[in-house]
Amino acid sequence: MISIRGLIKRFGSHEVLRKVNLEVRQGEAVVIIGPSGSGKSTLLRCVIGLETPDAGEVYVEGRPFIRRVDGQRGPLRRTREFRDVQRLMGMVFQQFTMFPHLTVLQNVTLAPVRVLGLGQEEAAARARKLLAKVGLEDKIFAYPEKLSGGQKQRASIARALALEPKIMLFDEVTSALDPELIHEVLSVMRQLAADGMTMMVVTHEMGFANKVADRVVFMDGGTIIEEGKPSDVFSSPKEVRTKAFIDKVLTHI
């Protein structure tokens, strides 16, 4: 489904991603964990083309999306083909990115109408169905400022799903939320995974990783240190750094 090969990203002289390789299979939920600054978010941002990697390749459903050789200059070019492949991926961010001047419904129908060429009616019907799925059927005419953080994130998920992506990327989507709102967002994500959506999830919610992930990837210092089934990674990590991280996050409770 997604194939990441030799991804390198530098910010100035600091190498944030050091030749990352990762395959995500159809229907798989991959949860990426690791300390702050380990490159998890940068990895997602490179995969979807928001950051320009310094080198490496990304393939989506076998279609080449990003191919950079080291030393190549300039930002990614947003060609038609680039946008077509980019659209196969949906993404939800840590920050709230609902468009504040549009209602929830308009937020969700904008791209289907403008990008997929759906009629207003059809797009609205699709949006209503998705908003019902994330539990926001009574908020469709509300503006984002009237929503709680959890509702905004659920609406953002519906907005991304409206383009019928093949894979969803979640970048610490619960990190900006009040603790009591985290659950409602995670349960939507768990439902998505159960429906067979291919997912890459960066999160600090270890309970979610443990329960929902098909595979857990531990990153540190810009590389993948260890990956495996959640039960293996959490209970018997092979690498010292993985063990240190997991001990730290699990014992702070």
Binding site: I48, G49, L50, R78, R83, D84, Q86, R87, M89, G90, M91, F93, Q95, T97, F99, P100, H101, L102, L110, A111, R114, V115, S156, R159, A160, L163
Partner: peptide, 25 residues
């Protein structure tokens, strides 16, 4: 910036991004 990024990954073309997301704000 994240508004612009959200518009980008929704696949909006440059004119659509300006018209529906950036300029109204």
């Amino acid at each position: 910036r994240d508004q612009v990024e959200a518009a980008d990954i929704l696949g909006l073309s440059y004119p659509d991004k300006m018209r529906f997301v950036v300029l109204p704000q």
